[in-house]
């Protein structure tokens, strides 16, 4: 294929007027469309589209699932919702993505769950001050905040309908395409964002009110081998 055939892009001209300088310089940037060519800048209109063909932008349609789910009580700013929905793989990481939010959320969730599962103790257990620590490290305790549970949760609640990420093959299943992992990370990021904006107390209430019951159901099925 000749390079001439590949070049189907548009030219964008940007006028630059520095505030303090009377000089005006003009920059012409060629934005390439079509197949990837090393060294050419791709047209964002074409590059920033997810596997469903949705354009990356802050629209009500893109963020409405998360916004309705959070409600007023746990609301977070719109641009942060978009960041929650964006994975590092999207657009080679050029848009704000959810890695840091997920780091916060996953740690908070593990800590909350550790407190949650050790809350009560049987009489004959080796409880310390009424807390049964023997459950920690068991499959249920480890899977409660695991990727599978959170990924399935996001799917069940329809929270992962719009996500911005790149997959090797979108035709593969929920798990093998990587959607499970990305959905789980999105959920961690959501918890993290609530923690950032409302503080730990409210974020823990959020987990308690909106997540824990469903997470327990999914995990019990997973651990006892009932999950599909």
């Amino acid at each position: 294929m000749y390079i001439r055939q590949l070049v189907t892009g548009t030219f964008r001209t940007v006028k630059l007027t520095p505030k303090l300088s009377p000089l005006t310089t003009t920059r012409s940037i060629y934005l390439h469309k079509g197949p990837r060519v090393a060294g050419l800048k791709r047209d964002p209109q074409e590059a920033l589209v997810n596997s469903q063909g949705l354009k990356y932008e802050l629209t009500d349609d893109n963020i409405k699932h998360i916004k309705t789910y959070l409600g007023d009580k746990y609301s977070i700013p719109d641009d942060i919702v978009l960041q929650v929905l964006t994975h590092k793989s999207f657009g080679n990481g050029i848009k704000p993505y959810n890695e840091k939010l997920a780091a916060m959320g996953s740690k908070l969730l593990s800590f909350y769950l550790a407190k949650h599962v050790t809350k009560s103790a049987n009489k004959d257990s080796f409880a310390i001050n009424g807390r049964n620590l023997d459950v920690l490290g068991s499959p249920i305790s480890r899977e409660l905040g695991g990727l599978f549970t959170l990924g399935v949760f996001a799917k069940q609640q329809g929270l992962n309908q719009v996500m911005f990420w790149t997959t090797r093959n979108a035709n593969l299943g929920f798990e093998s395409s990587g959607e499970l992992r990305i959905s789980a990370q999105m959920m961690y990021a959501l918890i993290g964002a609530v923690n950032f904006y409302h503080g730990k107390e409210v974020a823990e209430l959020f987990i308690q009110e909106r997540l824990i019951d469903q997470l327990e159901k999914i995990t019990v099925d997973l651990v006892s081998g009932k999950a599909e």
Binding site: S138, E175, S176, L222, E228
Partner: peptide, 14 residues
């Protein structure tokens, strides 16, 4: 194009 789901997820063991 849609392949059967293959479980690759490793469930934690005791």
């Amino acid at each position: 194009q849609i392949l059967t789901t293959v479980r690759t997820y490793q469930v934690a063991t005791a």
